[in-house]
Write a protein that binds this DNA or RNA. Sequence first.
DNA 1: CGATATTGGTTGATTTTGTAACCAACAACG
DNA 2: CGTTGTTGGTTACAAAATCAACCAATATCG
Lengths: 151, 151
Amino acid sequence: MSHPSDFDLSRFTPYLLNLAAENTGKSFQRTYRDRYGMLRTEWRVLFHLGRYGPMRARDICDRAQVHKTKVSRAVAALSDKRFLTRTTRDDDRREAMLSLTKAGEAAFRDLIGAAWQFDQDLLAPFSPQERRILIACLTRLAGRSDDVDAI
Amino acid sequence: MSHPSDFDLSRFTPYLLNLAAENTGKSFQRTYRDRYGMLRTEWRVLFHLGRYGPMRARDICDRAQVHKTKVSRAVAALSDKRFLTRTTRDDDRREAMLSLTKAGEAAFRDLIGAAWQFDQDLLAPFSPQERRILIACLTRLAGRSDDVDAI
DNA sequence: CGATATTGGTTGATTTTGTAACCAACAACG
DNA sequence: CGTTGTTGGTTACAAAATCAACCAATATCG
């Protein structure tokens, strides 16, 4: 495609990304929604705490690139579900450390298994090379090429 | 990664897709929002009509995989902006053909140029092979592998 | 110290989306 | 024909995302 007039929506990258994200996201959504009544942000917060250990709400905002009001509400919902606890820090009483309860950890273990399986199935049709390139491109397009594994 | 316990969120495909979609989408959003006060669905409807010619709301739903209420509202908004007109068909008075006005076509030409440029910039860092694989994977993940260019 | 700015986090108001019910026009079938 | 079922499209109501204002704790700097 060398000229705007030939430009097709089905090759407009943001559109394709959105379609793919919605399609796969909605599909996996059923898992955490049906099993634990979670919203997506709740699942993300749970994942972060389960995978990387206790941290502040703000850390989750930074890592997951989610706005603090969304995180705040997700944390409140997870707290209502008794999946996490807030502990105000003594050295800075504004901050609260978030950590999963036993029930939260159990939910995390259950869901990470499902996520893993889901991802395996999703990538099954692609070759190792295709997967590598897809992940690399997406990581770059996600705008956090350098700090994907940073903490 | 061969075991769920090592499974990293930054390699969970739906998450990555979502991050990439949000990042690129928000970036391009500024263009149609600032220039024409459009929402994303409005931009999509405009694009479909501009690129493929007059069609019914239902056709846009099918093609763009958008729910009919969203399309209905986007059409109403675009109509308010005098970017399109509805013409009830004589042979089936339920259906309305949607077509762009002159102003709508002008907006389309402006935006498709911007979109094309945006996409060029977005894909600039990738090699031809990487682009090919990325587009192919995304198309498949979008769940419309067979009919991307149909119609 | 005390005034001001900044930060972590929450809450409320507005906007946008999602879900379901709905209406009018047409189709199918007795 | 008329009853029932579908289809294109809109509207009403509930759920959620966004944005701005807010509070309390801490940092900064005169």
